[in-house]
């Protein structure tokens, strides 16, 4: 039978684990609020940009001179998959879910004989993909040192992707990230970045139904906006990811805290039982010793 001391030690260590998970849960909750605000604040820009691009692209897509970012490079052979995960673990199935979605996509592409390149954003995604796809990972971007992800971080990735596209390193680019639905639900999502997927929209009309004037012309504006749009989309994915990571972390740490509580209860019960058993045993020894006299 384990000694009482070892019980006391285990109870003490589980108690300190519970303190830590509780603290992590609270930190995640406050970070989540901030991340959610950031994701919401970024929304007007992305929405406006989408609306303008959709209205411009509708008319220009079939033109022979349409920008490559819109029309594609004419091929569909090399795919770049950006896998955006968190840098840190301890957030339940968050990273695994994203990686699983990415893996599905990669396997589907490879079955169709496409070449796949992977750009990992976030350390955990790389760790999980490295075993299977080490040769296809071209690079990893980490934000471990970055306290708060800003637009410049996204723009740096965007620039890289655009440079590669301009150099003809890939034909189609998509990003896998986790869409933040609510604190308890994050949905791994696949979104195609290049060529741009346009939701159908007519020409943009003003409140009085008049058509917009463009300065310089529509094609020039479109050429200016498309690269920006890539950055904005990446930025949005990163923000959603950050919010999702904290949401998942909060839920994971909450259940860890609760579980630690249960473990403590069980251990305390066992400890008391053992203690009582020992007292009873000692009493029996004394009584039987007295009877023998």
């Amino acid at each position: 039978m384990p000694s009482l001391k070892s019980f006391r030690n285990r109870i003490a260590s589980v108690k300190s684990i519970r303190k830590i998970t509780k603290a992590m849960q609270m930190v995640a909750a406050s970070n989540l609020r901030r991340a959610q605000d950031a994701a919401e604040a970024a929304r007007p820009y992305a929405e406006k940009m989408n609306a303008v691009i959709a209205s411009l692209a509708g008319g220009l897509k079939d033109n022979p001179g349409a920008p490559a970012l819109l029309a594609g490079s004419g091929k569909d052979q090399v795919h770049l998959v950006i896998v955006a995960t968190a840098d840190r673990g301890l957030c339940g199935g968050f990273n695994t879910n994203i990686v699983r979605r990415a893996r599905q996509h990669i396997q589907a592409l490879e079955r169709n004989g496409k070449e796949v390149k992977i750009l990992c954003v976030g350390r955990k995604g790389r760790d999980q993909l490295k075993r299977q796809y080490a040769k296809r990972i071209i690079d990893t971007v980490e934000f471990v040192q970055v306290k708060r992800i800003g637009f410049t971080n996204a723009a740096a990735i965007g620039r890289r992707v655009l440079d590669m596209f301009a150099a003809g390193d890939f034909d189609v680019c998509s990003i896998v990230y986790s869409e933040f639905k609510s604190v308890i639900s994050q949905v791994p999502t696949l979104r195609q970045l290049i060529p741009v997927v346009i939701e159908e929209a007519g020409p943009l009309v003003g409140p009085q139904g008049n058509v917009y004037e463009y300065e310089p012309d529509e094609a020039a504006i479109l050429a200016d906006l498309l690269p920006r749009n890539v950055n904005v989309q990446i930025f949005r994915a990163l923000l959603e990811n950050v919010a999702g990571e904290f949401g998942a972390k909060m839920a994971a740490m909450d259940s860890a805290t609760r579980n630690a509580g249960e473990v403590i209860d069980n251990l305390t019960l066992q400890y008391n039982r053992t203690r009582q058993a020992m007292i009873t045993k000692e009493l029996i020894e004394i009584i039987s010793g007295a009877e023998a006299l």
């Binding site: 303008v52 943009l204 009309v205 003003g206 008049n210 058509v211 917009y212 004037e213 463009y214 300065e215 310089p216 020039a220 504006i221 200016d224 906006l225």
Partner: peptide, 19 residues
């Protein structure tokens, strides 16, 4: 500061998109 020159916007400006 539009790419084709500065422009002032007052109430009732015509619909315009500019870089």
């Amino acid at each position: 500061p539009g790419s084709e020159g500065d422009f002032g916007v007052l109430a009732g400006h015509m619909p315009l998109i500019s870089t």
